[in-house]
Simulated scan of single mutants.
Amino acid sequence: MKMDVYNSKQATVLAVDDTVTNIEVVKGVLANDYLVQAAISGPVALKIIAKQKPDLILLDVMMPEMDGYEVCRQLKADPATKDIPIIFLTAKSQEEDEAKGLSLGAVDYIAKPISPPILKERVKNHLLLKASRDYLAKQNEVLEEKVLERTSQLSSLQDVAMVAMGALAESRDPETGNHIRRTQYYVKALSQKLAQTEKYREYLQPDIISALFKSAPLHDVGKVGVVDSILLKPGKLTEEEFEEMKQHTTYGRDAIEAAIGSLGSADNFLQFAKQIAYSHHEKWDGSGYPQGLAGEDIPLSARIMAVADVYDALISTRPYKVGFGHEKSVAIILEGRGSHFDPDIIDCFNAITEEFQQIAQRFQDKTTLE
């Protein structure tokens, strides 16, 4: 694939030499193919380059004020100019002189007197090499942008899929409304507050909080396995019916485990989703279900979800109950500190109850009370 730097513009070559005759020779060789600029000293060259970067620099070594080696050193030290190819064009033709020039970052070293055909070919080749590097760099930038865009799209798709799956479970109970969205944002708010504590600061990094946010909609996905006669019953469940209702935690865990098995691996959000679906009805004192776990044996994700889920259940009206107001719901949650709920999480909840109320109002439906 040919990279031609001249397709979009004529390349600019800056000739830096304190001898006007040498500059005229360079112009005579290159002017038909390139825009040739001139500088009669190192400082003048640096000023020109600062205003408009050339595509290539032909640089003499022996100049007053500042020699070519120092000009090269300064240009290569500056990120804005370090990629401009520099060809030393000089009478200093000893091997050590050439080695020094190349070690400073020059791409070539041509000895005077100048051979016009050699100069033309060297300049052409190095401009083509520069065009190739620039093209590849641009392609890498485009590729990185596409990867980031695709990653963002996949993340958004993942979010939508999780909410959709959760909504599928909740759709069998039309009274739940925006319960999924509210609990999802409660979980995020609690996690962010908990991340400010010394105990959880190191663990609850932004990627973990993001995974918890994504996984929260699946907390009741197991409801799809509960028969309608129990799930949609308007009155109080019998003991046997309640035992069946409790099975939604196991149904949810099994469904997510099956998804993990199909993928062959599990991101954090799937692991959290499994923990939440299975354990968000556990209680701090061990009186919950399905396993009767207690304290920190209950996964942190499930302990956070428990607060979010119960708060939303308290403020929401259902066929079998009237929703409580925000203040009463908060009071009930606080009473459960150390029995139903993790004390650390409740302390964080107590600090952000207004944020919970704002989330409830933001995603309010007809069954949610302010």
Score class of each variant (00 low, 15 high):
residue 2 K to W: 01
residue 6 Y to A: 14
residue 13 V to E: 04
residue 15 A to S: 15
residue 17 D to W: 09
residue 18 D to T: 08
residue 24 E to T: 07
residue 24 E to K: 14
residue 25 V to F: 09
residue 27 K to L: 11
residue 36 V to Y: 08
residue 37 Q to V: 07
residue 42 G to K: 10
residue 46 L to E: 10
residue 66 M to W: 07
residue 69 Y to W: 12
residue 70 E to Q: 14
residue 74 Q to E: 11
residue 75 L to M: 15
residue 80 A to T: 07
residue 82 K to P: 00
residue 83 D to H: 07
residue 86 I to Y: 01
residue 86 I to A: 02
residue 88 F to Y: 11
residue 88 F to W: 07
residue 91 A to M: 06
residue 95 E to I: 15
residue 100 K to G: 02
residue 104 L to Q: 09
residue 108 D to G: 10
residue 108 D to L: 13
residue 115 S to F: 08
residue 120 K to T: 13
residue 127 L to F: 03
residue 128 L to Y: 13
residue 132 S to W: 09
residue 134 D to M: 05
residue 141 E to Q: 15
residue 143 L to F: 09
residue 149 E to Q: 13
residue 151 T to A: 10
residue 158 Q to H: 07
residue 160 V to C: 03
residue 163 V to K: 12
residue 165 M to A: 11
residue 170 E to Y: 14
residue 184 Q to H: 01
residue 191 S to Q: 02
residue 191 S to K: 04
residue 192 Q to C: 08
residue 194 L to I: 11
residue 199 K to N: 01
residue 205 Q to D: 07
residue 208 I to L: 06
residue 217 P to G: 04
residue 217 P to T: 09
residue 220 D to I: 07
residue 221 V to G: 00
residue 227 V to L: 11
residue 242 F to N: 09
residue 247 Q to M: 15
residue 251 Y to R: 04
residue 252 G to K: 05
residue 254 D to H: 10
residue 260 I to D: 01
residue 267 D to P: 15
residue 274 K to F: 02
residue 276 I to L: 04
residue 298 I to D: 04
residue 303 R to C: 01
residue 309 D to L: 09
residue 319 P to I: 08
residue 319 P to N: 04
residue 329 S to W: 06
residue 333 I to G: 03
residue 341 F to L: 06
residue 342 D to G: 01
residue 344 D to I: 10
residue 344 D to F: 04
residue 346 I to V: 15
residue 355 E to W: 00
residue 357 Q to P: 00
residue 369 L to M: 09
residue 370 E to S: 14
